[in-house]
């Protein structure tokens, strides 16, 4: 690892902590049921009046039903806007209505905060669809995640209470007081740095040189054509013109990162200069992905009245993140043995980045790409500034495994914290089994019901990933989408299912996933990865809220010190390792060994 990489990692963590802690004070106030005064408070109450919202506390079942119906309505709206976009305003490129399977996949994807994109934004979605369907869901899906985190924290903090908060109040406050102002601030910064924000027609420009490139050939259904050996068939294309896509990018970019959504305005996502124009915007994008998830750790401590608990969760997340970031940064700085054999100089120096530059933006280089990849997959964001498919096998294993851990290393806004707190419950349960005591966490007894719900949460995503991958590799429609046969093709499918089930949304590319088969499979996986996870979390919140808080005694396991951090890290890593190592061995591990064999 280079000195620059160490420095980047250190500065990133320092800036993140310095911003997240004060933000947590502000977010704690939003989570507090006390009314907020001033103009903002008036707007909030006007929204409740217009919507007919009763802001009383809800039981967990009522909270869950409201959340579910609201999100299902979101799927219907996003689906309809895509299907009708040709006749809706702001479609200057006359883009066709999106096909049913792709529209359904995208609707579920944006509502579940996954933002998996089987389409290319600039050639598929009108400005109206981008703004009124996709960007709106970027706000609402993020607010939904934070609301569930608030509900779970209240479950721990309240004593003998029947309710866990009000979904409509949480949703409105998160959107109005947190996501909108932060997005406005970050969007203006992005515009100042050169991110575009307009409603212009796309521009045709003549390039200085003619460009010739190899393009994979596809059949009428959009599937890759393959030769007798199973390799993709390509055709040579030469061009001297380029189409520059325009659009209201900066405003969508801000919430894309802050809400850990990750769905790019353009197909190239954050590698595109109009989405991510400078090293400063790249740094702000990385900070934005972790800002709210990191702040929510401290919110947890503040709402419990014991900030040490928040620091412990933050510490456990940081330990895993730093370990994985170091592995990714190291792996990407290594020379590719295949290129070494061809005599290519890949050493790091003043004049070249060295290491593996394939699939990376030269504007960002190895450090900013590997760090971005680690952050975007630790958080369930899924924005990319480099192509993960082109990472070295171990470099590619890092994002994939971080996703498979359940997106709990900072994770998605809200979902990262509630996912990590579920692992904390599992950790105290394991510790309780070892010492023969009834487990308790932050003053609440953990009993049979909470462990049953925890088991559902921990088992549901691996079930979706592994069964989904098995279905894809065993069926003709699943294998037909593979551009790269062999272990790398398996990695691409495993990554796609991992990304969908854990609501990340990034891709290993190289997989033709915009087909009826993958659109349906991934939509079902994304839905259950989100809501079959949230329902038991809310059930735990409701059960815990009804319990008394028990006092700390000499026999209580301290959950704020290094011992508990180590226990929590061990639980997350062991569950992740035991569940996915066999599948990873068939993909990135084999690829790595194949490269070593060549060396």
């Amino acid at each position: 690892m280079t000195a620059q990489a160490w420095l980047a990692l250190l500065i990133f963590l320092a800036v993140l902590t310095a911003l997240a802690y004060p933000l947590s004070i502000y977010i704690s106030r939003i989570a507090d049921p006390l009314p907020i005064g001033g103009i903002a408070g008036s707007i909030e109450h006007a929204i409740y009046r217009v919507a007919g919202v009763d802001s009383k506390d809800m039981t967990w079942t009522r909270y869950a039903i409201c959340l579910l119906l609201f999100n299902a309505l979101g799927v219907v709206v996003v689906y309809l806007v895509q299907r009708l976009q040709l006749w809706l305003p702001l479609n200057y490129q006359h883009l066709a209505n999106v096909s049913g399977d792709s529209a359904f996949d995208t609707a579920v994807s944006f509502v579940t905060n996954t933002n998996w994109q089987g389409y290319a934004g600039e050639s598929t979605m009108s400005y109206f669809t981008q703004m009124l369907a996709l960007a709106v869901q970027n706000f609402l899906s993020a607010a939904t995640g934070i609301s569930v985190a608030f509900a779970l924290i209240r479950g721990f903090a309240r004593r003998s209470a029947a309710g866990i908060g009000n979904f409509w109040v949480d949703l409105t406050r998160c959107t109005l007081y947190l996501l909108l102002p932060l997005s406005l601030l970050v969007a203006v910064l992005f515009m100042a740095q050169g991110a575009i924000q307009n409603f212009d027609d796309y521009k045709q420009v003549r390039t200085l040189e003619s460009l010739t490139y190899a393009q994979p050939k596809v059949d009428a259904a959009g599937m890759p054509l393959k030769d007798a050996k199973g390799d993709p068939v390509t055709e040579s294309v030469t061009t001297r013109t380029q189409t520059l896509a325009m659009g209201p990018v900066a405003s969508q970019e801000a919430i894309k990162m802050l809400g850990t959504n990750g769905g790019g305005f353009f197909n190239a996502n954050s590698a595109h200069p109009y989405e991510n124009p400078t090293p400063l915007t790249n740094f702000v994008q990385m900070i934005s992905m972790f800002l709210i998830p990191a702040a929510l750790c401290f919110v947890f401590g503040r709402m419990l009245g014991d900030t040490r608990q928040g620091w412990a969760v933050y510490g456990a997340m940081t330990v895993i993140f730093v370990g994985m970031a170091i592995l990714a940064l190291w792996a990407e700085q290594q020379a590719n043995p295949l290129l070494v054999r061809m005599g290519v100089d890949q050493t790091h120096g003043i004049l070249q980045a060295g290491g593996n530059m394939e699939g990376k933006e030269t504007r960002f280089g190895i450090t900013a790409s590997a760090l971005f990849a680690t952050i975007t997959t630790s958080a369930s964001c899924g924005a990319v500034n480099a192509m993960h498919d082109s990472f070295m096998p171990l470099g590619g294993l890092v994002p994939m495994w971080l996703i498979q851990l359940g997106e709990v290393v900072f994770g998605g806004v809200g979902s990262g914290l509630y996912g990590m707190l579920i692992f904390a419950i599992m950790a105290v349960f394991v510790a309780g089994l070892m010492i023969g005591r009834t487990p308790e966490y932050v003053g609440k007894k953990i009993q049979s019901f909470e462990i049953k719900m925890t088991s559902i949460v921990i088992l549901v995503t691996p079930l979706l990933v592994l069964v989904g991958t098995a279905v894809a590799v065993m069926t003709e429609q699943g294998r037909a989408g593979i551009f790269n046969p062999g272990s790398h093709g398996f990695s691409e499918i495993l990554y796609a299912l991992s990304s969908a089930a854990n609501n990340n949304g990034s891709a290993f590319a190289g997989l033709g996933a915009n087909t009826p088969f993958y659109n349906m499979l991934l939509a079902v996986v994304m839905w259950f990865g989100r809501f079959a996870f949230i329902v038991p979390v809310l059930a735990i919140a409701g059960s815990l809220a009804g319990k008394k808080r028990i006092e700390v005694t000499a026999g209580t396991l301290p959950t704020h010190g290094p011992l508990f951090i180590a226990l929590l890290v061990g639980t997350v890593v062991l569950v992740g390792a035991l569940t996915y190592v066999p599948a990873l061995a068939l993909g990135p591990v084999i690829e790595h060994l194949q490269l070593l064999a060549i060396h």
């Binding site: 079942t61 299902a72 299907r83 049913g100 719900m453 809501f531 059930a539 409701g542």
Partner: peptide, 30 residues
């Protein structure tokens, strides 16, 4: 407009409501 995808959404919704009911039933039995 095809009806397959709205039907799939309805099924997903019903399955998740069944999960809520199942979890609530488990809670009552505790």
């Amino acid at each position: 407009m095809d009806l397959l995808y709205p039907a799939v959404l309805a099924l997903l919704l019903l399955a998740t409501i069944a999960l809520i009911k199942g979890c609530a039933a488990l809670e009552r039995r505790k």
